[in-house]
Design a protein around this nucleic acid. Structure first.
Length: 738
DNA sequence: AGCACGCCGACT
DNA sequence: GTCGGCGTGCTC
């Protein structure tokens, strides 16, 4: 090992003074870029990815544009160490980063970091060593050598291991031949990670509403420029097939496509579906990608080798070479929202990125978020409605069961109407699904003698009995202990009573009524992924009659023989403090009931509720555009959602670092007496921004639904004016927080 | 965000 | 006598 003087004396030995300085965004929460010197001969431009010294360490930064804020003292100024050999972030990407930083009130350096979270991706991938047949003769021709030569005489380049594998010989055969000069070494560019998708590989034959919908978005792609469409269609209506056509058109134009999906929807099934249509898989991007693959995807997206990326929210920050279309599937999914460091919702930022890049963006959901609904009703987004299912599959008929009129028998939780429907389904040899979003046997246990309630010692939520495991567990923090026999308060034996149903208890009730039926409980705590997959396969084969499941039955899986879906407590989840409770409940129940009837069998959904008469109004107060929006709940929603007078909406605080929605949620949890919450201004923007731009001083208004209704009506009378023009009077009642 | 410096408790 | 907790402060 040899040492140069500079190794000992560091920068002192550097002779070349920096000739100019440039702003560089560093991955750190500074308010703006830092200045660095550009060594003579280094050709940096805005967007160049560089390595710079920062304090004691070296970091990756990106050369920015704009004026440098102020002059730094010459003594502080340090030079850029290295310019990476990779495409610079383009103008649109840089403006996007600036925009996101401004909107989310985040330091631009941290936003830029999201676009560069791939440690070693910035140098070109090393070339691969390959071999090419030179045409010389070997000294001896053995059978193994013959096979190798047959293959390699095509004149193409082979990798050593590839050739050995193809010829069915070991690499030493090739080494031997190479020694005699039969092969020359060539350097090959690394193979692309995925093949290029072919827009004409296997087009779907679309008809009716699907065809019309596809035409609309394909036309948007053809026209070019910014547009936002919301494809809103029930489960099984062919939304994916429709947006695949827009992808095909974009590919024909030679531009790249980004498909954003919630992490859990990014499954092999989806990738295969894409492969079936385009003959190749899309590039994948998600959090648990291997580092090496991650780097390749990043780089090949930047160079344009990858044409389509399917990814979770962070894929939005990939540096596409020529992005032509963004799809946001399951746009309502809360997983698009990031709530650490930089707070952002990838769905909304996708619209921004599309706007800056002047390209179309397509939002897709069976149950669109209130924001997207508002934007589509107000004409800001184009609405594309797919009202029917593909082929002969029909949506299940939905009915509410008023539990006050059809109560369960004592000790039970299932209405006689539900049991009758289950019996009929069983007779027809079809499957029933009972949905209850509650794991375990009972959500609360108490002592009948002294009234003691079992509470978690760590976080004070109720301990849930799991009879199957003989434990009581906290679903909040994971605390668990064996189910006690005696009350810890008064010591009385055998007087503990389980309150309310969980899936295990429903299973017990079902087994009592239908002892001959094959009953199966699907719950996330009943075994691992493997077991779940086996059980799902068994169900698909008709090896179970009645399935009782928690939330995990809602997503993705198909149950071809399922013709009855029973919702045990349709109003569960409406009672908690979440301002989005009604919206979430509707989305969840839509997904669950959407499981039935997909193979054309006549199907039903029954929803048990104790609150069928609740006032019907859903007011949505939202949006940057600031329109207040109110509509009647649709018939479909009326059946799925126990009509509820919950106002989705509202406000306020001094915490500048969290967004309005998070704050509203926290506020609502802390103050259960508050009935209504309205978010005025962009729900997911930091409050400081809302307050700064929209001049908001708004607080809780009224503890009763009627107060909130009156308040919202007043706002509605003002018409759809921009939020920023409305001055809202603060109405704080400190008592309402108690 | 990292990372260093810096000042007070339980241990080889 | 040291190792190590995380509280402030700085990075072009």
């Amino acid at each position: 090992m040899s040492f140069e003087p500079s190794d000992l004396f560091g920068p002192l030995a550097k002779a070349e003074p920096a000739t100019r300085t440039v702003p560089v965004l560093v991955p750190m929460p500074a308010p703006g870029p830092y200045s660095y010197g550009v060594p003579a001969g280094m050709a940096v431009v805005p967007g160049s990815i560089v390595q710079v010294p920062l304090g004691p360490r070296k970091v990756i930064g990106v050369v920015w544009d704009g004026e440098e804020a102020g002059k730094v003292e010459a003594a502080k100024l340090r030079p850029i160490e290295k310019l990476f050999d990779c495409p610079p972030l383009d103008e649109a990407m840089r403006r996007f980063i600036d925009w996101v930083a401004a909107y989310t009130l985040s330091p631009p350096g941290l936003v830029a970091r999201m676009a560069m979270r791939t440690p070693a991706a910035f140098d070109p991938e090393p070339m691969i060593e390959g071999l090419r047949f030179t045409g010389h003769e070997p000294d001896k021709l053995t059978p193994a050598r013959r096979k190798v030569l047959e293959l390699s005489s095509d004149g193409l380049s082979w990798t050593k291991s590839g050739l050995a594998h193809a010829a069915g010989v070991s690499t030493s055969v090739i080494d031997g031949l190479a020694k005699q000069g039969l092969f020359e070494t060539v350097f090959l560019p690394p193979p692309p990670l995925v093949a290029k998708p072919d827009p004409d590989y296997a087009p779907h034959r679309l008809a009716g509403p699907q065809e019309d919908a596809a035409e609309v978005i394909v036309d948007d792609v053809k026209a070019g420029g910014f547009s936002v469409s919301l494809i809103d269609g029930v489960t099984g209506s062919g939304k994916t097939e429709v947006y695949f056509e827009a992808i095909a058109e974009t590919l024909k134009q030679g531009r790249q496509v980004l498909i954003l999906l919630p992490e859990i929807a990014l499954t092999t099934a989806f990738l295969e579906r894409f492969h079936d249509r385009f003959g190749a898989k899309p590039g994948e991007w998600h959090s648990d990608l291997a580092t090496r693959t991650r780097e390749k995807v990043w780089r090949q997206t930047a160079t344009g080798d990858i044409r389509v990326v399917a990814g979770a929210r962070s894929a939005l920050f990939l540096p596409f070479e020529d992005l032509g279309l963004i799809i946001v599937d399951e746009e309502h999914d809360p997983a698009f929202k990031q709530e650490d460091r930089v707070f952002y919702n990838a769905r909304d930022m996708a619209v921004v990125r599309a706007h800056i890049a002047k390209i179309p963006v397509v939002l897709v959901s069976a149950t669109p978020s209130v924001e997207s609904q508002v934007n589509s009703y107000s004409g800001r987004y184009k609405r594309i409605h797919l009202p029917t299912r593909f082929a002969d599959a029909a949506m299940p008929d939905l009915h509410l069961i008023d539990m006050r009129r059809h109560p369960p028998e004592k000790g039970g939780f299932l209405s006689p109407l539900m049991l009758r429907a289950m019996a009929k389904t069983l007779e027809k040899k079809e499957q029933s699904l009972l949905f209850l979003n509650r794991r375990g046997y009972a959500p609360l246990t108490l002592c009948r003698v002294c009234g003691h309630r079992f509470q978690c010692p760590q976080c004070s939520s109720w301990l849930v009995e799991h009879r199957f495991r003989g434990q009581i567990q906290c679903h909040q923090c994971g605390y668990a202990e064996p189910t006690p026999q005696a009350c810890p308060e008064c010591g009385t034996l055998d007087h503990l009573v389980a309150c309310g149903p969980g899936v295990e208890r429903i299973a017990e009730e079902v087994e009592k009524h239908f002892p001959e039926a094959r009953t199966l409980v699907l719950s996330s705590d009943m075994g691992g992924v493997k077991r779940l997959r086996l059980e799902l396969e068994a169900i698909a084969k008709g090896e179970a009659d009645i399935i009782i499941g928690t939330q995990l039955v809602a997503k993705g899986h198909n149950f071809p023989l399922m013709t009855l879906v029973g919702i045990v407590d349709a109003d569960i989840g409406l009672a908690n403090g979440d301002p989005r409770a009604a919206e979430r409940t509707f989305q969840l129940l839509s997904q669950v009931t959407g499981r039935a009837g997909r193979t054309g069998l006549k199907s039903h959904g029954l929803l048990q509720t104790y609150q069928p008469q609740h006032p019907v109004m859903m007011a949505i107060v939202s949006g940057d555009a600031g329109a207040f929006y109110e509509r009647e709940i649709t018939e479909r929603e009326r059946a799925v959602l126990p009509p509820y007078g919950r106002l989705v909406s509202m406000i306020v605080s001094a915490d500048n670092r969290i967004d309005a929605e998070t704050h509203a949620r926290q506020l609502r949890m802390a103050a259960p007496a508050v009935t209504g919450i309205a978010i005025l201004g962009p729900a997911e923007a930091p409050l400081a921004l809302i307050r700064g731009r929209h001049r908001f001083r708004l607080l809780i208004h009224g503890r009763k639904t009627s107060d909130m209704q009156a308040f919202v009506r007043t706002m509605l009378e003002r018409g759809p004016k921009p939020v920023r023009s409305i001055q809202v009077q603060v109405d704080v009642d400190p008592q309402s927080f108690l």
